[in-house]
Design a protein around this nucleic acid. Sequence first.
DNA 1: CGTTCGGTTGAAAGTCTTCAAGGAGGGTGG
DNA 2: CCACCCTCCTTGAAGACTTTCAACCGAACG
Lengths: 268, 268
Amino acid sequence: MQKNDFGPRITREAPRVNRIISREAANRDRRCAEPPSACDNCTVRWQALCAHLSPTELFALNQIARRRRLRAGQRILSDQEQMESFAVIISGAVKLTKSLLDGRQQIVGLLFPADFVGRPFAERGSYHAEATTEVELCSFPSAAFERLVQQHPGIEHELFRQALEQLDMSQEWMLLLGRKTSLEKVASFLLAVARHVRPPGPEGAGELRMHFDMPLSRSDTADYLGLTIETVSRQFRILKSSGAIRVSGARSITILDPAKLEAAATLK
Amino acid sequence: MQKNDFGPRITREAPRVNRIISREAANRDRRCAEPPSACDNCTVRWQALCAHLSPTELFALNQIARRRRLRAGQRILSDQEQMESFAVIISGAVKLTKSLLDGRQQIVGLLFPADFVGRPFAERGSYHAEATTEVELCSFPSAAFERLVQQHPGIEHELFRQALEQLDMSQEWMLLLGRKTSLEKVASFLLAVARHVRPPGPEGAGELRMHFDMPLSRSDTADYLGLTIETVSRQFRILKSSGAIRVSGARSITILDPAKLEAAATLK
DNA sequence: CGTTCGGTTGAAAGTCTTCAAGGAGGGTGG
DNA sequence: CCACCCTCCTTGAAGACTTTCAACCGAACG
């Protein structure tokens, strides 16, 4: 497991892959509805929950699984509402948000392929989950899933491991939200994305990706960093004009000077 | 389980209890070193991990347990360092902090009696754990504890439950850190403490305690809320002069007008 | 009785937000 | 194919909030 993980775990080129996958996924859709062999071709077969399950556990899980496809902006879970399902993300990105009555909003988690969506042992979620891009899910009716978890400790163990990783991440984020300046926030976020958008291959994390696409809009980025979109935009400009990064079309980022970016992420 | 829990779970009069307990605890210290009956008199016997274990699990756990007593300010776990033990808090409060190289610090978690300290499945903690008051721990050598967890799924299940609660709490805190004003932050913190400093009895949470002591110094409060001590102090003064609260001697708080405090916690 | 430490208060400075206006890209319809 | 519109992003200037710097207070302690 990655320690001192910074920010969300972003699995192998999550953001860019969406468009590419989306077509072929339509075919997989049907195949996957037929249990056992369905998982074999799954993109996250060896990274999600599934990778850590015994064949029987996997089979049981697959029995209750259903593929779902969501457009960007579509809601997955809502606070207040009854939670009716759990899911594993196959492609795309999901944001978890909390908000105040007057509309101020904060992204409290960002989930990527292989991550698990849902809050076990609670009837109602405390946050709102929404697709930030087109998203493909492998979802499970909550009742059946919980029954399964009780029978197969392996699933719970893996959920636990993921929960702890999310906890690490949210603590890192609390440090960012409470104590970093806007420039540090933006630089840190860029580095977090760059480090986690990893090339294919087992555990290729840790190295910086020099080129990648932002998984979030400016507005979502602001909500993730506890800033306004204007401030985010301004910090991008500073990093751009200092030669640390290059930005093409608001989403595509190239890191030109990693050291400079790294410095901006920690120094005032 | 409490949903929409706000802030840390503070178990029955956590902050005040410290001084009271500290004397009699000295005696228990020795008794508790002798396994099985030791737990019977334990203050957190029915709230901590222990409450959810089978008799055999509890016995096994007790076999490897050791009581420890720490003074305020003493370190429990350090980032970077090898984690050598896990522990359950018996009395006092423990803060989890993260900091940047230049000294800026953020409290990323606050733990109270019955809470669990330590990060399973990781060699090195990602945070620094420190007693904020005098603290009594029931601690377990990490190797033995991890072996035990593997053998007894009940323990892992309970740890999982606690981890999810901490995750809920840190997400609530991300909203506070990223989106609330200083007045809202302080008011929210006061309410969080008031709501969780609960009178004895099973599940007495939810109601506001009208009088209580702050579990943290101004400096720690600032580090918890992502503010400076001066700002915290100023917001206290505003709440004080608006008649929402009364403050005696910097630690003792009385809520005079709950509605007013509640309003300050959400409105700009 | 002086020192120290944690907390309070005031004034100035700085950072981030708010308000307002101006692009740039992508889709639609003429 | 181009004009138009819509959305998302950028930029500027003014204002608000929080921090910084500095002085002061008061209780605890030797």
